[in-house]
Protein backbone atom coordinates (compact mmCIF):
# COMPACT_ATOMS: atom_id res chain seq x y z
CA UNK A 1 0.00 0.00 0.00
CA UNK A 2 2.80 2.41 0.92
CA UNK A 3 4.68 1.54 -2.25
CA UNK A 4 1.54 2.14 -4.28
CA UNK A 5 1.02 5.50 -2.60
CA UNK A 6 4.64 6.40 -3.27
CA UNK A 7 4.38 5.55 -6.98
CA UNK A 8 1.15 7.54 -7.23
CA UNK A 9 2.79 10.48 -5.48
CA UNK A 10 5.58 10.51 -8.07
CA UNK A 11 2.93 10.38 -10.78
CA UNK A 12 1.16 13.29 -9.08
CA UNK A 13 4.31 15.40 -9.04
CA UNK A 14 5.16 14.69 -12.69
CA UNK A 15 1.64 15.55 -13.78
CA UNK A 16 1.77 18.77 -11.76
CA UNK A 17 5.10 19.70 -13.35
CA UNK A 18 3.85 18.90 -16.84
CA UNK A 19 0.63 20.85 -16.21
CA UNK A 20 2.59 23.90 -15.05
CA UNK A 21 4.69 23.70 -18.21
CA UNK A 22 1.57 23.54 -20.41
CA UNK A 23 -0.01 26.53 -18.64
CA UNK A 24 3.22 28.51 -18.91
CA UNK A 25 3.63 27.76 -22.61
CA UNK A 26 -0.01 28.52 -23.43
CA UNK A 27 -0.10 31.81 -21.53
CA UNK A 28 3.42 33.15 -21.86
CA UNK A 29 5.14 31.64 -24.86
CA UNK A 30 2.42 31.18 -27.50
CA UNK A 31 0.90 34.70 -27.30
CA UNK A 32 4.37 36.15 -27.92
CA UNK A 33 4.95 39.14 -25.66
CA UNK A 34 2.81 38.96 -22.50
CA UNK A 35 3.35 42.67 -21.86
CA UNK A 36 1.90 43.46 -25.27
CA UNK A 37 -1.03 41.13 -24.62
CA UNK A 38 -1.76 42.83 -21.31
CA UNK A 39 -1.49 46.40 -22.59
CA UNK A 40 -3.21 45.90 -25.92
CA UNK A 41 -2.12 46.92 -29.39
CA UNK A 42 -2.02 50.68 -28.85
CA UNK A 43 0.45 50.61 -25.97
CA UNK A 44 3.30 53.15 -25.87
CA UNK A 45 6.78 51.76 -26.30
CA UNK A 46 7.99 53.07 -22.94
CA UNK A 47 4.96 51.69 -21.03
CA UNK A 48 5.63 48.35 -22.69
CA UNK A 49 9.29 48.45 -21.70
CA UNK A 50 8.38 49.39 -18.13
CA UNK A 51 5.89 46.54 -17.81
CA UNK A 52 8.37 44.13 -19.34
CA UNK A 53 10.93 45.12 -16.74
CA UNK A 54 8.34 44.92 -13.96
CA UNK A 55 7.26 41.42 -14.98
CA UNK A 56 10.85 40.30 -15.46
CA UNK A 57 10.14 39.53 -19.10
CA UNK A 58 13.66 40.46 -20.16
CA UNK A 59 14.96 37.25 -18.63
CA UNK A 60 15.08 34.13 -20.81
CA UNK A 61 11.95 31.98 -20.95
CA UNK A 62 13.44 29.12 -18.95
CA UNK A 63 14.45 31.42 -16.10
CA UNK A 64 10.97 32.93 -16.03
CA UNK A 65 9.40 29.49 -15.84
CA UNK A 66 11.64 28.37 -13.00
CA UNK A 67 11.07 31.63 -11.13
CA UNK A 68 7.32 31.25 -11.46
CA UNK A 69 7.48 27.69 -10.09
CA UNK A 70 9.78 28.64 -7.21
CA UNK A 71 7.59 31.65 -6.42
CA UNK A 72 4.48 29.48 -6.20
CA UNK A 73 6.27 27.05 -3.89
CA UNK A 74 7.01 30.00 -1.60
CA UNK A 75 3.39 31.14 -1.83
CA UNK A 76 4.28 34.14 -4.02
CA UNK A 77 2.01 34.26 -7.04
CA UNK A 78 2.98 37.70 -8.28
CA UNK A 79 0.99 40.92 -8.21
CA UNK A 80 -2.20 41.30 -10.21
CA UNK A 81 -1.86 43.84 -12.97
CA UNK A 82 -5.46 45.09 -12.87
CA UNK A 83 -6.11 44.89 -9.14
CA UNK A 84 -2.58 45.85 -7.97
CA UNK A 85 -2.83 43.37 -5.10
CA UNK A 86 -0.85 40.17 -4.62
CA UNK A 87 -2.49 37.30 -6.54
CA UNK A 88 -2.24 35.11 -3.43
CA UNK A 89 -4.46 37.60 -1.60
CA UNK A 90 -6.99 37.60 -4.46
CA UNK A 91 -7.05 33.82 -4.59
CA UNK A 92 -7.42 33.57 -0.82
CA UNK A 93 -10.40 35.89 -0.99
CA UNK A 94 -12.05 34.26 -3.98
CA UNK A 95 -11.65 30.70 -2.75
CA UNK A 96 -13.97 31.55 0.15
CA UNK A 97 -16.71 31.61 -2.45
CA UNK A 98 -15.63 28.85 -4.84
CA UNK A 99 -14.78 26.21 -2.26
CA UNK A 100 -18.16 26.34 -0.44
CA UNK A 101 -19.85 26.48 -3.85
CA UNK A 102 -18.10 23.39 -5.26
CA UNK A 103 -18.20 21.33 -2.06
CA UNK A 104 -21.80 22.35 -1.43
CA UNK A 105 -22.74 21.15 -4.90
CA UNK A 106 -20.76 17.93 -4.45
CA UNK A 107 -22.47 17.19 -1.13
CA UNK A 108 -25.94 18.10 -2.38
CA UNK A 109 -25.59 15.94 -5.50
CA UNK A 110 -24.38 12.99 -3.40
CA UNK A 111 -27.18 13.38 -0.88
CA UNK A 112 -29.76 13.44 -3.66
CA UNK A 113 -28.22 10.78 -5.88
CA UNK A 114 -27.26 7.94 -3.53
CA UNK A 115 -30.73 7.27 -2.04
CA UNK A 116 -32.38 7.69 -5.46
CA UNK A 117 -29.88 5.36 -7.13
CA UNK A 118 -30.31 2.73 -4.39
CA UNK A 119 -34.07 3.03 -4.52
CA UNK A 120 -34.09 2.69 -8.28
CA UNK A 121 -31.84 -0.38 -8.16
CA UNK A 122 -34.02 -1.96 -5.51
CA UNK A 123 -37.08 -1.64 -7.72
CA UNK A 124 -35.15 -2.51 -10.85
CA UNK A 125 -37.39 -2.98 -13.89
CA UNK A 126 -40.45 -1.59 -12.12
CA UNK A 127 -42.25 1.50 -13.35
CA UNK A 128 -40.79 3.64 -10.59
CA UNK A 129 -37.26 2.65 -11.70
CA UNK A 130 -38.01 3.46 -15.32
CA UNK A 131 -39.55 6.77 -14.24
CA UNK A 132 -36.59 7.79 -12.09
CA UNK A 133 -34.09 6.81 -14.74
CA UNK A 134 -35.98 8.76 -17.42
CA UNK A 135 -35.86 11.85 -15.24
CA UNK A 136 -32.15 11.27 -14.65
CA UNK A 137 -31.57 10.81 -18.38
CA UNK A 138 -33.14 14.23 -18.99
CA UNK A 139 -31.28 15.72 -16.03
CA UNK A 140 -27.96 14.80 -17.62
CA UNK A 141 -28.92 16.67 -20.77
CA UNK A 142 -29.74 19.93 -18.98
CA UNK A 143 -26.99 22.56 -18.96
CA UNK A 144 -26.44 23.90 -15.44
CA UNK A 145 -26.61 27.49 -16.64
CA UNK A 146 -30.10 26.89 -18.00
CA UNK A 147 -31.25 25.51 -14.65
CA UNK A 148 -29.63 28.56 -13.08
CA UNK A 149 -31.60 30.97 -15.29
CA UNK A 150 -34.86 29.17 -14.48
CA UNK A 151 -34.06 29.15 -10.75
CA UNK A 152 -33.35 32.87 -10.86
CA UNK A 153 -36.64 33.45 -12.65
CA UNK A 154 -38.67 31.41 -10.17
CA UNK A 155 -36.99 32.23 -6.85
CA UNK A 156 -35.61 35.72 -7.43
CA UNK A 157 -38.04 37.30 -9.88
CA UNK A 158 -41.41 35.62 -9.32
CA UNK A 159 -41.23 34.55 -5.66
CA UNK A 160 -38.58 37.10 -4.58
CA UNK A 161 -37.28 34.85 -1.81
CA UNK A 162 -33.64 34.54 -2.87
CA UNK A 163 -31.15 36.96 -4.41
CA UNK A 164 -30.57 36.68 -8.17
CA UNK A 165 -26.87 37.25 -7.77
CA UNK A 166 -24.08 38.96 -5.88
CA UNK A 167 -22.35 37.96 -2.68
CA UNK A 168 -22.32 40.02 0.54
CA UNK A 169 -19.22 38.33 2.02
CA UNK A 170 -19.04 35.93 4.95
CA UNK A 171 -18.01 38.58 7.50
CA UNK A 172 -20.69 41.05 6.39
CA UNK A 173 -23.61 38.65 6.48
CA UNK A 174 -23.13 34.97 7.08
CA UNK A 175 -26.76 34.13 6.46
CA UNK A 176 -26.91 36.39 3.42
CA UNK A 177 -23.86 34.65 1.97
CA UNK A 178 -25.44 31.26 2.49
CA UNK A 179 -28.57 32.51 0.72
CA UNK A 180 -26.49 33.86 -2.14
CA UNK A 181 -24.88 30.44 -2.63
CA UNK A 182 -28.09 28.41 -2.45
CA UNK A 183 -29.30 28.77 -6.05
CA UNK A 184 -25.80 28.39 -7.57
CA UNK A 185 -25.25 25.21 -5.52
CA UNK A 186 -28.57 23.74 -6.69
CA UNK A 187 -27.87 24.64 -10.33
CA UNK A 188 -24.46 22.98 -10.20
CA UNK A 189 -25.67 19.95 -8.26
CA UNK A 190 -28.75 18.82 -10.21
CA UNK A 191 -27.10 17.64 -13.47
CA UNK A 192 -24.29 16.00 -11.45
CA UNK A 193 -26.86 14.27 -9.25
CA UNK A 194 -28.50 12.78 -12.35
CA UNK A 195 -25.20 11.27 -13.47
CA UNK A 196 -24.39 10.03 -9.99
CA UNK A 197 -27.82 8.43 -9.46
CA UNK A 198 -27.38 6.43 -12.67
CA UNK A 199 -23.90 5.31 -11.67
CA UNK A 200 -25.08 4.37 -8.18
CA UNK A 201 -27.94 2.34 -9.63
CA UNK A 202 -25.88 0.42 -12.18
CA UNK A 203 -23.03 -0.18 -9.71
CA UNK A 204 -25.49 -1.56 -7.18
CA UNK A 205 -27.16 -3.78 -9.80
CA UNK A 206 -23.73 -5.16 -10.70
CA UNK A 207 -22.95 -5.89 -7.07
CA UNK A 208 -26.31 -7.53 -6.36
CA UNK A 209 -25.38 -10.37 -8.74
CA UNK A 210 -22.40 -11.33 -6.61
CA UNK A 211 -22.32 -14.56 -4.65
CA UNK A 212 -21.73 -12.85 -1.33
CA UNK A 213 -25.11 -11.14 -1.63
CA UNK A 214 -26.78 -14.53 -1.98
CA UNK A 215 -24.70 -15.80 0.94
CA UNK A 216 -25.78 -12.87 3.08
CA UNK A 217 -29.41 -13.55 2.25
CA UNK A 218 -28.94 -17.28 2.83
CA UNK A 219 -27.51 -16.75 6.31
CA UNK A 220 -30.73 -14.97 7.18
CA UNK A 221 -29.86 -11.30 6.76
CA UNK A 222 -32.89 -9.26 5.80
CA UNK A 223 -33.23 -7.86 2.30
CA UNK A 224 -32.73 -4.35 3.55
CA UNK A 225 -29.69 -5.13 5.64
CA UNK A 226 -28.12 -7.05 2.76
CA UNK A 227 -28.76 -4.16 0.41
CA UNK A 228 -27.14 -1.54 2.59
CA UNK A 229 -24.42 -3.49 4.40
CA UNK A 230 -23.17 -5.61 1.52
CA UNK A 231 -24.66 -4.07 -1.60
CA UNK A 232 -24.29 -0.33 -1.23
CA UNK A 233 -20.93 -0.51 0.50
CA UNK A 234 -19.38 -2.43 -2.37
CA UNK A 235 -21.12 -0.36 -5.00
CA UNK A 236 -19.60 2.81 -3.61
CA UNK A 237 -16.25 2.12 -5.32
CA UNK A 238 -17.31 3.14 -8.84
CA UNK A 239 -19.37 5.94 -7.31
CA UNK A 240 -16.20 7.27 -5.70
CA UNK A 241 -14.45 7.37 -9.07
CA UNK A 242 -17.26 9.36 -10.59
CA UNK A 243 -17.24 11.72 -7.62
CA UNK A 244 -13.56 12.37 -8.28
CA UNK A 245 -14.26 13.07 -11.94
CA UNK A 246 -17.19 15.28 -11.04
CA UNK A 247 -15.00 17.49 -8.97
CA UNK A 248 -13.25 18.54 -12.14
CA UNK A 249 -16.62 19.22 -13.80
CA UNK A 250 -17.74 21.27 -10.81
CA UNK A 251 -14.56 23.34 -10.93
CA UNK A 252 -15.19 24.07 -14.60
CA UNK A 253 -18.87 24.64 -13.89
CA UNK A 254 -18.01 27.38 -11.41
CA UNK A 255 -16.64 29.49 -14.29
CA UNK A 256 -20.10 29.73 -15.86
CA UNK A 257 -22.18 29.67 -12.69
CA UNK A 258 -20.11 32.30 -10.87
CA UNK A 259 -20.43 34.55 -13.90
CA UNK A 260 -24.14 34.04 -14.07
CA UNK A 261 -24.71 34.84 -10.38
CA UNK A 262 -22.02 37.55 -10.15
CA UNK A 263 -20.23 35.59 -7.45
CA UNK A 264 -16.70 36.80 -6.72
CA UNK A 265 -15.15 33.33 -6.91
CA UNK A 266 -12.10 31.80 -8.59
CA UNK A 267 -13.94 30.95 -11.80
CA UNK A 268 -15.06 34.54 -12.21
CA UNK A 269 -11.59 35.75 -11.28
CA UNK A 270 -10.12 33.64 -14.07
CA UNK A 271 -12.75 34.71 -16.57
CA UNK A 272 -12.30 38.38 -15.74
CA UNK A 273 -8.55 37.94 -15.70
CA UNK A 274 -8.79 36.57 -19.22
CA UNK A 275 -11.02 39.36 -20.53
CA UNK A 276 -8.86 42.00 -18.82
CA UNK A 277 -5.75 40.21 -20.08
CA UNK A 278 -4.36 39.98 -16.56
CA UNK A 279 -2.14 37.01 -17.36
CA UNK A 280 -0.51 36.96 -13.93
CA UNK A 281 -3.83 36.29 -12.24
CA UNK A 282 -4.93 33.76 -14.89
CA UNK A 283 -1.67 31.80 -14.84
CA UNK A 284 -1.61 31.18 -11.12
CA UNK A 285 -5.33 30.66 -10.56
CA UNK A 286 -5.57 28.15 -13.42
CA UNK A 287 -2.53 26.36 -12.01
CA UNK A 288 -4.25 26.25 -8.63
CA UNK A 289 -7.46 24.75 -10.03
CA UNK A 290 -5.55 22.20 -12.10
CA UNK A 291 -3.43 21.27 -9.07
CA UNK A 292 -6.63 20.84 -7.07
CA UNK A 293 -8.07 18.54 -9.75
CA UNK A 294 -4.88 16.47 -9.92
CA UNK A 295 -4.80 16.22 -6.15
CA UNK A 296 -8.40 15.02 -5.95
CA UNK A 297 -7.69 12.37 -8.61
CA UNK A 298 -4.71 11.29 -6.52
CA UNK A 299 -6.86 11.04 -3.38
CA UNK A 300 -9.46 8.99 -5.27
CA UNK A 301 -6.75 6.62 -6.51
CA UNK A 302 -5.43 6.16 -2.99
CA UNK A 303 -8.91 5.70 -1.53
CA UNK A 304 -9.64 3.19 -4.26
CA UNK A 305 -6.57 1.14 -3.40
CA UNK A 306 -7.36 1.38 0.30
CA UNK A 307 -10.85 -0.02 -0.31
CA UNK A 308 -9.89 -2.65 -2.87
CA UNK A 309 -6.49 -4.32 -2.37
CA UNK A 310 -6.65 -5.93 -5.83
CA UNK A 311 -6.10 -2.55 -7.44
CA UNK A 312 -2.75 -1.98 -5.77
CA UNK A 313 -1.05 -4.55 -7.96
CA UNK A 314 -1.83 -2.57 -11.11
CA UNK A 315 0.67 0.09 -10.19
Amino acid sequence: MLWFAFLRLIGLLTTLLAASLVIFVVLEVIPGDPAEVMLGLNAQADTLAALRAELGLNAPVSTRYVNWLLGMLKGEFGVSYTYSVPVSELIGERIQVSLPLATGALILSTVIAIPIGVYSARYHGKIIDTGIMSVAQIGIAIPNFWIAILLVYVFAIVLRVLPSGGFPGWDVSFFGSLQALLLPVIALALPQASILARVMRSALLDVLHEDYIRTARAKGLSNKATLWRHGVRNALIPVLTILGLQFSFLIAGTVIIENLFYLPGLGRLIFQGITQRDLIVVKSSVMLLVALTIFVTFLVDIAYAAIDPRLRRRA
Binding site: G11, T15, A18, A19, V22, V26, L27, I30, P31, S248, F249, I251, A252, G253, V255, I256, G267, I270, F271, I274, T275, V282, V286, L289, V290, T293, I294, T297
Partner: peptide
Protein backbone atom coordinates in the same frame (compact mmCIF):
# COMPACT_ATOMS: atom_id res chain seq x y z
CA UNK B 1 -3.84 11.54 -21.60
CA UNK B 2 -3.76 11.92 -17.84
CA UNK B 3 -2.35 15.39 -18.29
CA UNK B 4 -5.19 16.52 -20.55
CA UNK B 5 -7.71 14.97 -18.16
CA UNK B 6 -6.18 17.04 -15.36
CA UNK B 7 -7.41 20.24 -17.00
CA UNK B 8 -11.10 20.77 -16.29
CA UNK B 9 -12.31 20.78 -19.88
CA UNK B 10 -14.44 23.90 -19.91
CA UNK B 11 -11.78 25.84 -18.04
CA UNK B 12 -9.17 25.01 -20.66
CA UNK B 13 -11.60 25.72 -23.46
CA UNK B 14 -12.10 29.16 -21.92
CA UNK B 15 -8.31 29.58 -21.82
CA UNK B 16 -7.78 28.47 -25.40
CA UNK B 17 -10.58 30.53 -26.89
CA UNK B 18 -9.53 33.61 -24.99
CA UNK B 19 -5.87 33.39 -25.97
Amino acid sequence: NDLIFAFPSLLSAVLITSI
